[in-house]
Computed example of a mutant assay.
Amino acid sequence: MSDVVTSLPGLEPTSALSVETVLSVRMWNEHLFSFTITRPASFRFRSGEFVMLGLAGEQRPLLRAYSIASPAYAEELEFLSIRVPDGPLTSRLSQIQPGDQVYLGRKPTGTLVADALLPGKRLFMLSTGTGLAPFLSVARDPEIYDRFDQIQIVHSVRRVVDLAYREPLEAKLADDPLVDEQAATAFSYVPTVTREPFHTTGRIDALIDDGTLFKDMPGEKHLDPETDRIMLCGSMAMIKDLAAKLETMGFVEGSNSHPGQYVIERAFVG
């Protein structure tokens, strides 16, 4: 690992961007992919944060905010992305191969972090689509298991093939070298598919209302602002609907400066 890439041809680092090398690419389906890149030795982040990532543009770098999917201790950085048809960045990013170069922002940030939440007993991470990414990082952070008794990821997608990372999540992160023992008893995963037959087919708000969300979770079969903490990431519609629902239940949004009972990524929803 190195702090600045200066010898490789192609992209040039700047004061705000380092140049990193693609290490691996995985296509989950025709439009969903993940990839890993080199991690600068000085790059530090909190689980759940995002960073700017991109490629060269005609006049300036073409950048987009991406949540970091890898745990904070990993030597590589992992990202999950969807290819948007005719998207100026994702249409090109979906074609990257090992050995290619990408720009990486030097300053990760974000509010989907444990520090933005008040202490609690249960942590629910509610996601749609690629909104799963930051929760993959949070769920593999040993500190999160010190903060909460129970950790749950809920992932809502349209099709079964959109359930990226399903196998390790169903296995309760058994291959993780740092949290496998805690996750065996404290972690649960609820995948739900909205447009195809599956064992769970409701939207997240319906799973809350009918109690499905709590089938593998000890404690109350409803959300309680006294003990439960919630992170939301995914489609803007989901975030706005669920945030409004949580507010009516007495949950207060948190931030890095004022921790609360639930958090969203403001940078992504405006």
Rank of each mutant, 00 (worst) to 15 (best):
M1H: 09
S2A: 15
S2D: 13
V4C: 03
V5H: 03
T6L: 13
P9K: 00
P9Q: 01
P13T: 00
P13S: 02
P13D: 02
P13V: 02
S15N: 09
S15C: 03
A16S: 15
V19E: 02
V22K: 00
V22M: 00
S24L: 01
S24H: 07
V25Q: 10
R26V: 14
W28I: 09
N29Y: 07
N29D: 12
E30H: 13
F33R: 04
F35S: 08
T36V: 06
P40M: 07
P40R: 06
A41M: 12
F43C: 09
G48F: 07
E49D: 02
E49R: 11
L55R: 10
L55D: 09
E58K: 14
Q59W: 04
Q59N: 13
P61A: 12
I68Q: 13
I68T: 11
I68V: 15
I68D: 10
S70C: 08
P71Y: 07
Y73K: 02
Y73N: 08
E75I: 02
L77M: 11
E78D: 08
S81E: 04
R83S: 06
V84I: 11
V84P: 02
P85E: 05
P85T: 00
D86P: 05
L89W: 08
L89P: 10
L93N: 13
G99S: 07
G105L: 10
K107I: 14
K107M: 14
T109Q: 15
V113L: 07
A114P: 05
A116C: 14
A116V: 05
P119R: 10
P119S: 14
F124D: 02
F124Y: 15
M125I: 04
M125D: 06
G131T: 09
L132G: 07
L132F: 11
P134K: 01
V138G: 10
P142N: 05
F148A: 11
I151M: 09
Q152A: 10
V154H: 04
V157A: 08
R158N: 03
R159F: 13
D162F: 05
D162T: 02
L163W: 09
A164S: 14
R166Y: 11
P168I: 04
P168F: 05
E170Y: 01
L173K: 06
A174R: 01
D175Y: 01
D176P: 05
P177F: 01
L178N: 04
V179G: 03
D180N: 15
Q182E: 14
A183S: 08
A184G: 06
A186L: 00
A186K: 11
F187V: 00
Y189L: 02
Y189D: 00
V190C: 14
P197W: 00
F198R: 00
F198W: 07
H199Y: 10
I204Y: 01
I204W: 01
D205C: 03
D205G: 13
L207P: 05
T212M: 07
K215E: 15
E220H: 03
K221N: 13
K221Y: 00
A237E: 13
M238E: 03
M238H: 03
I239F: 07
L242C: 04
L246C: 12
M249N: 09
V252K: 12
E253F: 01
E253R: 15
E253V: 08
S255W: 14
H258L: 12
V263F: 00
V263T: 03
E265M: 11
E265Y: 09
F268H: 00
F268Y: 02
V269C: 02
G270R: 01
